[in-house]
């Protein structure tokens, strides 16, 4: 149990390539923070720096109030869950679970008690004497989690732990990780590139891009008020429609609401905020042709081409749409659902 604090953390590789550009982040005790971003944004590197597997070029990382910059991973009292599980293949599940405790010189009786408890929590008691290769992917994932929780560390670090599982199992394990983290109350940092995983797991979400933090906040905050074009495009599926203001104004009969701040070059709108059919006063009314319909069950994603706009717009239609491809469609962008952005700074206005 401990808070983690990052202050001005930078990472420069010996060749001169800088991958982390000064990260400041405070993670509260017992909080689950998810680092999310596209590949190469530095999220894994940052996690590995917290773990002590990568050196810190500048700045400080403290865990539980103590600066740990030069400490070995084992001395930081953290536990890590790896993407490919990294179970010791020649040891039984029990051997895997107790290895860290044995290295710490924990008394035998306590090791046994903790291993039993962890195995019960994760429902892997019946596999304790098997080797990792005799287990399925989901079971291996549980063992990897077990190896983390038996140590009762100050913090859990998860490095894309679910990306090797199939979609269904991923959903189950996601819920289980959330439940487990809540009940143990251990501070956790979780890295993923899957924004659904990020949204559902996080107490707070950290969106990273190019070695910088783009935005930090509750998942719903990030969804409702993205601070930059990058966050707007990254969070939410299907992604937000980003429309060029000049092109929009050039369309016949379109006037932008007065409420938009000065200097807005780009407006964003969530696909599910668009209303099919007629508009209330002040809304932007558009019409286009349906290019493609993706029925996803409860809702349908419509790709609509509007003459004069560069990209097809995505609209989420509730229920099973009666529309057919190539039909023309009228829809409205509600004035209060527009997100104003500046192209020059990439920031929200």
């Amino acid at each position: 149990m401990a808070a983690i604090e990052l202050a001005g953390v930078k990472k420069t590789y010996p060749g001169g390539a800088q991958v982390i550009h000064g990260i400041d982040l405070a993670i509260g005790d017992g909080e689950l923070v998810v680092l999310v971003g596209p590949s190469g944004c530095g999220k894994s590197t940052l996690l590995r720096m917290i773990a002590g597997l990568e050196t810190i070029s500048d700045g400080t990382i403290s865990i539980g109030g103590a600066v740990v910059n030069t400490k070995e991973p084992a001395e930081r009292d953290i536990a890590m869950v790896f993407q490919n599980y990294a179970l010791y293949p020649h040891m039984t599940v029990r051997g895997n679970l107790e290895y860290g405790l044995k290295n710490r010189g924990t008394p035998r009786a306590e090791i046994d008690a903790r291993v039993e408890a962890a195995a019960r929590t994760l429902e892997i008691s019946q596999f304790l004497d098997r080797k990792p290769r005799q287990l399925s992917g989901g079971q291996r994932q549980r063992v990897a989690m077990g190896r983390a929780i038996v140590r009762q560390p100050k913090a859990f670090l998860f490095d894309e732990p679910l990306s090797n599982l199939d979609a269904k199992l991923r959903g189950q394990m996601r819920i289980e990780i959330r439940r487990l983290q809540r009940s143990l109350g251990t501070t956790s940092v979780y890295v993923t590139h899957d924004q659904l995983e990020a949204m559902t797991l996080a107490d707070r979400l950290v969106v990273m891009n190019g070695g910088h933090i783009e935005q930090v906040g509750k998942p719903t905050e990030l969804y409702d008020r993205p601070a930059s074009l990058f966050v707007a495009g990254f969070i939410g599926s299907p992604p937000m429609n980003l429309l060029d203001v000049a092109a929009l104004q050039a369309l016949p009969g379109v006037t932008l609401p007065d409420a938009l701040p000065d200097g807005t070059d780009i407006v964003g709108i969530r696909p599910d905020a668009i209303i099919l059919g007629t508009a209330a006063p002040g809304d932007i009314l558009l019409s286009g042709t349906v290019e493609l319909i993706e029925p996803v069950g409860g809702e349908s994603h419509l790709y609509v081409r509007v003459a004069g706009l560069e990209q097809a717009m995505i609209i989420v239609a509730q229920g099973r749409s009666e529309l057919v491809e190539a039909a023309s469609l009228d829809f409205a962008l509600p004035a209060d659902a527009l997100h104003p952005f500046s192209r020059a700074t990439g920031k929200r206005l």
Binding site: P73, A74, M80, A86, Y99, G100, N103, R147
Partner: peptide, 29 residues
């Protein structure tokens, strides 16, 4: 041998000699 194995051992508190003896030697049997 995947790097993560070595990293997992480091997190588990195994130094270089311990990693060699407990992980690498049995794997190279």
């Amino acid at each position: 041998v995947p790097d993560e194995l070595m990293e997992a051992a480091r997190v588990d508190g195994a130094g270089p000699m311990k990693f060699f003896r407990d992980i690498l030697l049995p794997l190279s049997r």
